[in-house]
Every structure is written in C-alpha cells, then in structure tokens.
Amino acid sequence: MSWLTNFVRPRIRALVRKDNGGNNLWHKCPACERMIFHRDLDAANAVCPHCDHHMPIKPARRLALLLDEGGWERVEVPAVPVDPLRFRDRKRYGDRLKEAQTETEEKDAVIVVQGRLDGRPVVVAAFNFGFIGGSMGIAVGEAILAAANRAVTQRAPLIVITASGGARMQEGALSLMQMPRTTIAVDQVKAAGLPYIVVMTHPTTGGVTASFAMLGDIAMAEPGAIIGFAGARVIEETIGQALPKGFQRAEYLLDHGMLDMVVHRRDLRDRLIRVLGLLTAGRRAEGAPATAMAALPAPASA
C-alpha cells in the first residue's frame, strides 16, 4: 500500500462524492435550522453556537467531557441472557441487538466506568440513546446494579447520565422488572451514605424516569431535554387536546418542582464537582438516620 492508495484515493473519492460539503462540513441545527461549521460544533460539544440547542453525544464523548484527563476504568457488567423471550416483530430482536452492537461496538445501552472528577473517584453510568433508543432491558438493569455496587465498594459517588425511551419492550415483563431492580441498586448507594446524582439528557422517558432517574439526591438536566413518564403523542391521543408550550422540557420540569437545576453542557463538569464537594463536606451521612426521638433533649424535671 502506498500513500497513493491510502491517502490520495480517499481524498479524491471524498471530493467527488455528491453529498460532499453540506453534510460533512456543515451541520444544520435541528432547532434553529442555522448552519454550523463542523469544527465549531465539535468545539461546542454538539451544542448549537447560535441557539444553545443540545444535540446528542456518545457516552465516550460525554465521559471525556466530564471526567479528569488520564482515563477511566471500565466497570464490567455481568453477561445477561440474550433475547430471553425470542421476541420477533417485523424483525427479530436478536438481529436488532446484533445491529446495535455492531454499530455502537458496545454490548448494550449503558456503559459503566470508574474515573475521577477533580481528583475524586466517581462511578459513572452513561446511556447511549443510539443503542435501541437507550431502552432498559436486563442488561441495562445489570449495568445500573454493577455501577451501584462499584460505588458502594469504592465509597464513591454514583452519577447516572440518562437518555432513554423507557423499557425495552422486546424483553416483556423482564424489562418492567428492571424498575424495581434499578431502584434497589440506587437505594444501596443511598444506604451507604453516598451521593447519587442523576443527569437527565434528551430524552428520558417511561420506565427509566419512573424508577432510578427520579430518585437522585440531586436531579440535573440538560437544557431542552424531554423528560417525562408518558410520551407526548400518547397524552395527546388520550386527552384529545394540544399540549402546552415547552411541555415535558427540562425547564418545564424545573418550574414544576421536578428538578433541582438545568445545567448547560459546558457547565456540567464544574457543577458536578461543586455539588459533590458540598454534599460530602459535612459529616458523612450514615445508613440509617437517627430518629427524631433520639435527638430530643431529655424532659426537664419540674
């Protein structure tokens, strides 16, 4: 192989390809529809420089954005039964899984790592919406359990970054059971007196929201993220009326008391560092809170 075949030929091919230009070098923001030069978009971590619209990013990119440089260690997630129901719709679930695995080079929708955040060890579980819509089946449940387990054994805070359409229906009621299973996982972190922080990104809906995602000690979300239980279309069809402006957006949830804060992607790392620093600055929380009774002073004798 010469530099001709390796370098020149792909260059020429790229030049003559019809869609060259618009699609490769320029991106159109889906929100404001203005064009963004690819390097600008990259530098802004897939946030539109014109309107601040947050576009999806892959877990690896997300981790690089949040965690200290110098790498992180993958936390192994136990193997799970593949396609336990032998589910088939217009396509086999087994084939959908294989396609998603080939495309993402991951086994399932959540990756778990242990890394450092401003020097402090943390465990992060990050969803990949690109893997069957980030849907939660047994593998995702096991990933959250593995993350919680690592957090407890390392006495590290747990940060979960969600992006999910909800339960993975191809695993039937087994996916429904991930709601209690993941709830047990994050309760173990809380019982150990460790912070559990959720960062909800677009979109976070269904069974994921209605279990561990809404149980964070601190609930953060990215601007504009859709967060909710039922899908907008289902709600519209059920009640037969139009939905209010901004419905189920992160800012809407903040207004309705469902989140602590909406945080711009560029500020997320600093905000996490500050929150974790403050939460762990006091006397470390114990598993079982002392009863109010024990704290009451003894009755004064008359």
């Binding site: 209690p180 209605a210 561990f212 239980f229 059920t238 419905f247 189920q248």
Partner: peptide, 26 residues
C-alpha cells in the same frame, strides 16, 4: 397503566411511581 395526562406529568407521575416502587421494596 398510570394516567397519561398533562396534570399527571406536571405533578410528577414518574416520580410518584418511582417512590411507590421504592416504598414497596422497603
């Protein structure tokens, strides 16, 4: 299923279900 409505979402349908699961388990 749990009610899919504007009011239900505004008052935290997801959070209510999550806490109910947590309560039952504990």
């Amino acid at each position: 299923g749990a009610f899919p409505g504007i009011d239900a979402e505004e008052r935290g349908q997801a959070e209510a279900i999550a806490r109910c699961i947590q309560t039952g388990l504990s």
